[in-house]
Design a protein around this nucleic acid. Structure first.
Lengths: 136, 136
DNA sequence: TGATTATATTCATTTATACTCATATAATAA
DNA sequence: TTATTATATGAGTATAAATGAATATAATCA
């Protein structure tokens, strides 16, 4: 995929936030929207932008569509991939997102539970984050 | 400089085109606008975006402001820099721009001559480019 | 087979950004 | 010292892109 298209796809903060998560693990749309506290339609649209640019790929499993960084992208753009991985840890917003992702992972919440009570999960995820924000 | 700000700065085609030239050599605003056939104010504004993001740096020499890739940027973002250098050669627009740059360099035109008759230089630069376009 | 669900897509709106023209500003040149 | 010049910047406009609410669509589930 073309350099210019890749950079256009990466030129948005929310898309970098999504990529930040997908670099660490495969996630489905409903998980991404929850961890990043983003509307479903917005998440879907951003994911499509990244997919179109060849950065990520998707796979349907049962009712859910999972996204991950495309292996082909990693192979063909290894320098960029390494750069991104190295730099993610220098950004506070991205680090915050990672904390939320870890919290989500540690909770063993599932997509099904997100369906049943997403607001509960959001509250759970925000518990730690709100405290962290007050310390700043 | 922050990852997100860097990607925002690189998320525009014209700014990549400018960077493509500056990676090869230092140039002043009037040269960039001529080689890329861009208005002076637009060139200036894009240059400022790249400078603000810490990608390029400027230096005033006599009446002219010269821009170049910031060495600090190269040091701190070497993977990204290498990635860009490797990928530039895969894009046809960027290759075309490089041909124009080479033609400009080979002509020994100067900033002063650009002042006197920029349209002459533009015609000269377009001579080869128009022929190349017809072959495609 | 009908109900339910996940998510992509449409529509409308908002926000951001790119662009041009004109000019202010800071220099250099004469 | 005045004239000239390079370019950054202001103002206005056009275009692009981001966003949320609603819904269509394609599946899976029961």
């Amino acid at each position: 995929m073309d350099l210019i298209e890749i950079f256009k796809a990466l030129g948005d903060e929310n898309r970098i936030r999504i990529l930040n998560l997908l670099i660490r693990q495969e996630l489905c749309v409903c998980e991404i929207e929850t961890v990043l506290d983003m509307t479903q339609s917005n998440a879907s649209r951003h994911l499509n932008k990244l997919k179109t640019a060849g950065v990520i790929a998707s796979e349907k499993k049962s009712q859910w569509v999972y996204y991950r960084v495309d292996n082909k992208f990693i192979e063909e753009n290894n320098l960029l991939y390494e750069f991104i991985k190295n730099k993610l840890v220098e950004n506070t917003q991205l680090l915050r997102d990672v904390e939320r992702l870890k919290k989500y992972k540690n909770s063993y919440y599932t997509c099904e539970q997100l369906r049943e009570d997403k607001s509960q999960v959001l509250k759970y995820l925000q518990g730690q984050c709100e405290k962290t924000e007050n310390e700043n």
